[in-house]
């Protein structure tokens, strides 16, 4: 039993390393994971004069979100197009292991980008109030975002741009309704229900609490809802991809 679990973990790690080596430097990953959030942040910064703490919190919120959800949409379409998917599926692994390997690579990308921003913030004199809580929130939200990204790859297409387009259509509005740039209580009432089902809302709330001391919810609520959304998205994503992955062969 323990040997079985250990073998599964080794396989997930091997798949994840493969994804990191192959996809971290692909165009869509860099554009959607690093450049896009950076420009969005710059666009908001120009003309407004937030505090350094607010600026770092905003950048951290959107960068984690974009980075962790940027790789997962492109991997399966890419592997379908490159004709490597059937080759890898024929090994003693399950579809779930492939998906978890992909999510792990994506999560680590999100964590890495977030850590870079935290370190830059520290150099600029902006320190989070509680580093362990910050790390836990980054890990949990990155898992959640990577599942979200993987959901976009459930369309059995071999064109990575299809998944990138779909993910952009969904992710961009989330930035504006999740309290990153505009606090939730200042959003129109009809948008707020959508804010409450966005995982970014709860992550941004934790970040705001840790960097500027403001938050819309209790931190316990933030983590509970984030965990719940992660579980729901995880199950839904794996089940959806499990059904469609065979259509890619």
């Amino acid at each position: 039993m323990v040997a079985g679990i250990s073998d599964y973990l080794k396989k997930i790690w091997a798949l994840s390393i493969k994804d990191m080596r192959l996809y971290y430097f692909k165009g869509p990953t860099i554009v959607m994971g690093i450049i896009m959030p950076m420009f969005l942040w710059l666009a908001f910064m120009i003309g407004s004069s937030p505090s350094m703490g607010s600026a770092v919190a905003m950048l951290l919120s959107i960068s984690s979100f974009f980075a962790a959800s940027s790789i997962t949409p492109v991997i399966l379409p890419w592997e379908t197009r490159q004709k490597t998917l059937e080759m890898i599926l024929a090994r003693p692994i399950t579809i779930e292991l492939i998906l978890l390997g992909t999510c792990l690579a994506s999560m680590l990308y999100g964590v890495f980008v977030s850590l870079v921003i935290i370190v830059i913030g520290i150099f600029l004199g902006v320190c989070p109030a509680n580093i362990p809580v910050l790390i836990v929130s980054i890990l949990l939200s990155s898992i959640c975002y990577s599942f979200m990204g993987l959901l976009f790859s459930a369309i059995p297409s071999d064109v990575p741009a299809d998944a990138v387009l779909l993910s952009s259509v969904i992710r961009m509005p989330l930035i504006f309704i999740s309290g990153v740039f505009v606090p939730i209580n200042r959003l129109p009432a009809f948008i707020r229900p959508l804010s409450y089902i966005s995982p970014l809302t709860y992550y941004a709330d934790v970040i705001n609490k840790l960097y500027i001391g403001n938050s819309a919810f209790n931190m316990g609520i933030d983590f509970s809802v984030l965990l719940l959304l992660t579980i729901i998205l995880g199950i839904f994503t794996i089940e959806t991809n499990r059904r469609t992955i065979i259509k890619r062969l």
Binding site: K18, R21, L22, Q82, K83, T84, E86, M87, A90, R91, P92, I93
Partner: peptide
């Protein structure tokens, strides 16, 4: 599958590895 090796008809190795 742990007992078999497979070479699918239309497949590739990872070309960037």
């Amino acid at each position: 599958r742990s007992h078999i090796g497979v070479v699918p008809e239309v497949s590739n190795p990872y070309v960037d590895l």
